Simulated assay, not measured.
Amino acid sequence: MVALAVWLTALLALAGAQGRSLQHAREAELRGRIDAAVENLASAIQARPDSHWVHYVEAGYADHASPQDCPAQCDPAQRAAADLSRFKQSLRRSGGMAERISGAVCRGDVKKLPTAASPGCGGSGPLAIRVAWRSRQGRGWQEHADVWPLLP
């Protein structure tokens, strides 16, 4: 009986470790997808002249949420709208409905992290890509956020 109890305890410990390992792997995968989406948008923005960057400034997460396409001959504002729309679509594809990934490009204090409720945009500060998301931590959810400043 003692041997069986020890064996069951070890088996439960291994199952718990495997669950945590899977959770960490999912979180790393999600973060990698978010980083890739941010990198793609940052490359698109930085490929444009500095004078076009103003077209990327958003007021919040809801901006450019619907799919937009840019025909071959589009103006800078249309190009920015299409880039931002692709970025938001990429974020939506990166996580499930539970993760609730939100992103915006705006000016603000880069030390102030966005939240799920607000990207933390302000009228001044450097232009940055701001993303907030949540992931499973044990039995609950934890909110995460990051800011990627855009340098000309």
Results as ranks from 00 to 15, higher is better:
1 M>E: 11
3 A>C: 01
8 L>Y: 02
8 L>C: 11
8 L>A: 13
11 L>M: 14
13 A>C: 08
13 A>Q: 04
14 L>E: 13
16 G>K: 00
19 G>M: 09
19 G>E: 11
20 R>K: 03
23 Q>M: 06
24 H>S: 15
25 A>E: 14
25 A>S: 14
25 A>W: 14
25 A>Q: 14
26 R>C: 02
26 R>G: 07
27 E>Y: 06
28 A>V: 11
34 I>R: 07
36 A>M: 12
36 A>F: 12
36 A>E: 13
36 A>K: 05
37 A>Q: 03
38 V>D: 06
39 E>V: 03
39 E>P: 01
39 E>I: 03
41 L>Q: 06
41 L>M: 04
42 A>V: 11
43 S>L: 13
44 A>L: 09
46 Q>L: 12
46 Q>K: 10
48 R>I: 03
48 R>T: 09
49 P>H: 13
49 P>A: 15
50 D>R: 15
51 S>W: 04
51 S>F: 03
52 H>N: 07
53 W>G: 01
53 W>Y: 05
54 V>A: 09
54 V>C: 00
55 H>D: 06
56 Y>L: 01
57 V>W: 08
58 E>Y: 04
60 G>M: 06
60 G>V: 06
63 D>V: 06
64 H>M: 10
65 A>C: 00
65 A>D: 09
66 S>N: 05
66 S>I: 06
67 P>K: 10
67 P>S: 12
68 Q>P: 00
68 Q>G: 01
69 D>R: 06
71 P>L: 12
71 P>E: 09
71 P>K: 04
72 A>L: 13
72 A>C: 07
73 Q>D: 15
75 D>S: 04
75 D>W: 03
76 P>K: 05
78 Q>M: 11
79 R>V: 14
79 R>Q: 12
81 A>L: 09
81 A>V: 08
82 A>K: 10
82 A>T: 07
85 S>Y: 08
86 R>I: 10
86 R>N: 08
88 K>R: 15
89 Q>I: 09
90 S>K: 07
91 L>R: 05
93 R>I: 14
93 R>T: 12
94 S>M: 05
94 S>A: 15
94 S>I: 00
94 S>G: 10
95 G>P: 07
96 G>P: 03
101 I>H: 08
102 S>N: 14
102 S>F: 15
104 A>W: 02
105 V>Y: 02
105 V>W: 00
106 C>E: 09
106 C>M: 07
107 R>N: 13
107 R>C: 10
108 G>N: 01
109 D>T: 02
110 V>W: 01
112 K>C: 05
115 T>P: 04
117 A>Y: 03
118 S>E: 12
118 S>L: 09
119 P>E: 11
120 G>F: 06
121 C>P: 00
121 C>D: 08
122 G>D: 12
123 G>I: 03
125 G>R: 03
127 L>H: 01
128 A>M: 00
129 I>W: 02
129 I>K: 02
130 R>L: 02
130 R>D: 03
131 V>S: 02
131 V>I: 13
132 A>Q: 00
133 W>A: 01
135 S>A: 15
136 R>W: 05
137 Q>R: 10
138 G>P: 00
138 G>K: 02
139 R>M: 13
139 R>I: 08
140 G>P: 06
140 G>M: 06
142 Q>E: 11
145 A>S: 13
145 A>Y: 01
148 W>E: 05
148 W>R: 09
149 P>Y: 00
150 L>A: 01
152 P>N: 08
